[in-house]
Amino acid sequence: MDEPWAVRWLMIGTALLFLGLFLLIPLAAVFSQALEKGLAVYLSAISEPDAISAIQLTVLAAAISVPLNLIFGIMAAWAIAKFEFPGKSLIITLIDLPFTVSPIISGMVYVLIFGLQGWIGPWLYAHDIKIIFAVPGVILATIFVTFPFIARELIPLMESQGREEEEAALTLGAGGLQTFFRVTLPNIKWALLYGVILCNARAMGEFGAVSVVSGHIRGSTNTIPLHVEILYNEYNFAAAFAVASLLAMLALVTLAVKSLVGWKMREET
């Protein structure tokens, strides 16, 4: 490129300024606010029972939704990328639905189905099964909003790789599972890991959909983001930012792992 250096520096400078203003300063603010009243307050804020409970639920929701979406994502991407069938474009659109719809609506849908006034709510109530304002609702909402991440990451890659290697494995006598584990999976492993990381980050950070179905019951149905909101609304800023700093750290770890995986991916192709 032979742009004049002034133009180049102006562009780079603007980009850096923007990055600093909108990303780095808020991130720094989270940590400085969190530690404003000292380390003791910080540690007690993230170790009090309600905070621990919120952390546990967040981890549980991620631990269930990520593996499920891993399986669904691989299956959906495999079917879409390697086969032609009627209704394929409809399925692709459906996979994208959680991206296109507001998370609030995702949550409302579950209330509409499972809530007391909902379609099967009365039946659930009669059988003493709690979904809305309970842990299962939080997990369902998390699965819904994180559904596209893995499938979306895999579809373009699997489409570009085509079916020939799998066909070659079949002609060499490999069974379906052998073909999957020895040929398909090794070819998509980095993209899969990339998708899992993004899926996990969203599962732990999701606010909107979870907020609708959770009912904000302290020590029971609060996740980390909901717990932060409650503390903030109580003007308990130091504690709110302390808990929020956990999410910020998750974001930093995610970024680091993500760029490592991205680098591995480029190295191997």
């Binding site: 020939e164 290697e165 070659a168 020895r182």
Partner: peptide, 8 residues
Amino acid sequence: FQHYALFR
């Protein structure tokens, strides 16, 4: 295969 389809 035409494009060999070696396991990459």
